[in-house]
Design a protein around this nucleic acid. Sequence first.
DNA 1: GCATATTTGTCCGTATGTATA
DNA 2: CTATACATACGGACAAATATG
Lengths: 230, 230
Amino acid sequence: MDRVDEAIGGGARLLARLDRASTTQVVADALRERILDGQLRSGSQCQELQLTAALGVSRNTLREAFQILIAERLLVREPHRGVFVRRLEAADVRDIYAVRRLIECAALAAPASTRGLPEMQAAVETAHAAAARGDWYEVGNADVRFHLAITASVGSARVDRTMRALLAELRLAFQLMADAHALHEPFLGRNQQLVEMLEQRRPVEASIELAGYLDDAEQLLLATLTPVEP
Amino acid sequence: MDRVDEAIGGGARLLARLDRASTTQVVADALRERILDGQLRSGSQCQELQLTAALGVSRNTLREAFQILIAERLLVREPHRGVFVRRLEAADVRDIYAVRRLIECAALAAPASTRGLPEMQAAVETAHAAAARGDWYEVGNADVRFHLAITASVGSARVDRTMRALLAELRLAFQLMADAHALHEPFLGRNQQLVEMLEQRRPVEASIELAGYLDDAEQLLLATLTPVEP
DNA sequence: GCATATTTGTCCGTATGTATA
DNA sequence: CTATACATACGGACAAATATG
């Protein structure tokens, strides 16, 4: 009974037996949430016995949930060793920012990008308010919403899904940093600036600014990432 | 023993017991292949008992493989009804082409796009040869390689994976067409034309040409898709 | 509309093989 | 090298939902 990892489970059974979502889906959602908010830390192992005990589900169900999160690249399987919360390498960070530059800049340069303005403005305000009270986790959430608003202007469900998955992956890297403050603070003002450029109907300039913005964010993240050892 | 769907399985056991890939992965690969080459037709149900019998694996293993292919959007689950080979709607086709325009055109417009030239040239030659002998399935394969070569110039593993998944999804729509000939024939020459534009170092013009190309392909596919009913 | 058969969703027990202390 | 812990994979069971006659 002195089982490990009581961060998971919280004692109560997860299944409200609402029977709208399958147990597998509920488990995948629960695990995803705990990965993204850092309760399950990058690199830590997800042992089947511990998690089945903590979540109150069978190994089969858990393993199906694992497959979902492995496909989302939040977990990795090492054959016959187990399933682990993914650790982002520097190469991953570079790759993710390459995709972000491609998609976000193309989305922002298009005339339709102004469609995302209301949501972008709202995200900037939320971020400022959260920063004022020192809630940098919420600043991170607002930043994600800001960039999703940019790509939402493309109007493609697949672009939305891809960006959502990409930004979720990126959170794995954020968690390796000591303070979210240093990461997000420089970009509060620049988000605001992008909004203004779009309000003034200068989408192409905004796109160019965003490219440099993403370059800087990538460098900042890489700089704080590399000193971390396995 | 007069079980259905002997297209799958072929009598022999799939597992060579090489134990380099997991059974789940082998099953997922086998199902993916049969979906993409049309043996498992769009809209058809994947019954657990039939497939476990045909593949010689347990239900648990099969269900894990299902999750992989559901994540790839080649299968869809209808709760308490079963798992089906995905049917593409017109909206899906439009969405896929929107993403293709975004990614492929951005990739082609970049100076680095010439890096994909050798692979693009090879794909064009393969396609011509296959068309000459009426092998339109292989023409389709070569066309996929052609477009993957375009996006490979970005040098991003994630862009590659996204494009691969996208083109796999599109095959679900191709299969709904009677003749692959009508779909691919118009684009043999245009692929060749794109290669020439790139050889002449005119990537931006090539990108614009590709945008129109993808528009036309989308319209052609939609036209032959809509008359099909549930 | 109802009773029945089928199929999915989920759990459990267990055997085997692999990695690690 | 042995022992242990764990992942992998199988089969059986049963309830619940769905399809069928």
